[in-house]
Design a protein around this nucleic acid. Structure first.
Lengths: 201, 201
DNA sequence: CAAACAAGTGAATCATGATTCACTTGTTTG
DNA sequence: CAAACAAGTGAATCATGATTCACTTGTTTG
C-alpha cells in the first residue's frame, strides 16, 4: 500500500517552509541580503543545511522568495494609498507618505529592498517590482493628465522618475535617521510638484 | 651600481597601465561589469594575468578605477552644464539634457554605471558619486531657493530625488531605445517641475 | 511489527574566479 | 659582457559559499 502524506505531515511541512522564510527574512532585516546564507538560515531555523534544500531548490529561489514577500507588502500598502477615494494629488501624497513612513519603520530592510548590492536573481526581481510600482503611478498620472489636473507629460517616464526619486531620496535619511516627518513631507511635496499638479485640492 | 628606471621604462609602464584600463573599459562597455574578469582584461590587453597584478593590487582596485574614470567624465559634463552663465532653471535643464544625451550615446556603459549589480567595492564608489551629483544639484537648489526663483524645499532631499529620478527614468528607455529627444525633453521638464521653478526664464 | 517511503542531516565536494609564485625574459649599469 | 634588478608569465592554488549524497530518523500502511 502506497505511502500517503497525512494532513499532519502536510501542515508540518508548511510550517517548516514558513519557518525557514521567517528565519531568512529576519536575517535580511538584521544584516541585509549579505547575511542571507544557507548556513545561517539553517541554524536560525534549527535545521540542517540539507533541509533547506528540501524546501527551496537553490539559494536564488529562497532569496527571491524573501524579497518578493517583503516587497509585495510594500507595494500593497502603496497601492492602498493610491486607491483612496480622493483627488489625484491627495492619492499621490498618501502614497509617497506611506512609502517613506514604512521605510523609516524598518530602515535596514528598506535599504536591503531598495539599494543593497545583491545576487543578480534578486536584482531581476527588484527591477520587476520597480516596474510594478511604476505601473501604479503611471495609471494615476494618466488619470490626472486626462482629467486636466496634471500638466502634459509622458506618464511612463514620470512614473519611473517618481520611483527613482522616492527610493534615492530616502537612502541618506535611512542611515542618518533624522526627523522622519519633515523628510516625509518634503518627499511628498517633491512628488506633487514633479507631476505638475495644476489644481490645489 | 643601482638599477634605475629610465624614462623609456617609465613611459612604457604608464602606457601599459593605460592600456589595461582601456581594455577594461571596453569590456564594461560591451558586457557591463559582469564581463570584467582579470582573465578577460589580460587577454584583451595581450598580457598574462600576472601582469595585471603588477599594475593593480587586486580586482576591486581595477574595477573601481574603471568606474571612477568613466563616472568622472559624466560628472564633469553635468558640472559644466550647471556652470553655464544662465538662470537656475536653464542650468538644471542643461544638466538633465546633458545627462540623458550622454547616456543614450553609450547605453550599455550608462547602464553599467547606473544600475548594474556589481561588486560591493564598486557599489561603494557608486554611492559616493551619487553624492557628488547630489551635491552639485544641492548647490543649485540652494541658490534658487535663496534668490526666490524656486519654491521652499529641503535642498539635500530634492537633490537626491533628482539624481534618483534621472537615473531610474532612463533605465527603461536605455534598453528599449525609442525616441531619445522626446525622452530627454520629458525628463528635463520633470526635473524643472520637481524643484518648483516659480519664474519662467 | 515490518516494509515502504519521505524528511532530516552535515561532512565532503564542487564551482567560479581571484590570487600567488617560481620561473623566464628584458633592462640597466659599470 | 655579467651582475643586479624589474617586468612578464600562467599553471597551480586558494577562498567562499552553494550544493550534493550516503546515511539516519521519522511516518504511514497493512
Amino acid at each position: 500500500m502506497a505511502y500517503r502524506e497525512t494532513p499532519m505531515v502536510t501542515q508540518r511541512k508548511l510550517a517548516q517552509k514558513s519557518g525557514l522564510l521567517h528565519a531568512a527574512e529576519s536575517l535580511v532585516r538584521e544584516g541585509g541580503f549579505a547575511a542571507l546564507t544557507i548556513q545561517a538560515v539553517a541554524s536560525a531555523a534549527g535545521v540542517g543545511v540539507g533541509t533547506v534544500y528540501r524546501y527551496f531548490s537553490n539559494k536564488d529561489e529562497l532569496s527571491t522568495e524573501v524579497f518578493r514577500r517583503a516587497t509585495i507588502r510594500e507595494v500593497e500598502a502603496v497601492k492602498a494609498a493610491l486607491s483612496l477615494d480622493d483627488s489625484v494629488a491627495a492619492r499621490l501624497a498618501a502614497a509617497a507618505e506611506t512609502f517613506a513612513q514604512r521605510a523609516f519603520a524598518a530602515p535596514k530592510l528598506a535599504w536591503a529592498l531598495i539599494a543593497e548590492p545583491v545576487d543578480p536573481a534578486v536584482d531581476v526581481a527588484r527591477l520587476q517590482y520597480r516596474r510594478t510600482y511604476s505601473a501604479l503611478f503611471e495609471a494615476l498620472i494618466v488619470e490626472g493628465v486626462e482629467s486636466g489636473v496634471l500638466q502634459e507629460q509622458i506618464p511612463s517616464l514620470s512614473a519611473a522618475a517618481l520611483v527613482g526619486a522616492m527610493a534615492e531620496s530616502l537612502l541618506g535619511p535611512l542611515d542618518h535617521l533624522g526627523c522622519n516627518e519633515i523628510t516625509t513631507a518634503a518627499l511628498r511635496d517633491f512628488c506633487l510638484r514633479a507631476i505638475g499638479v495644476t489644481v490645489k485640492p
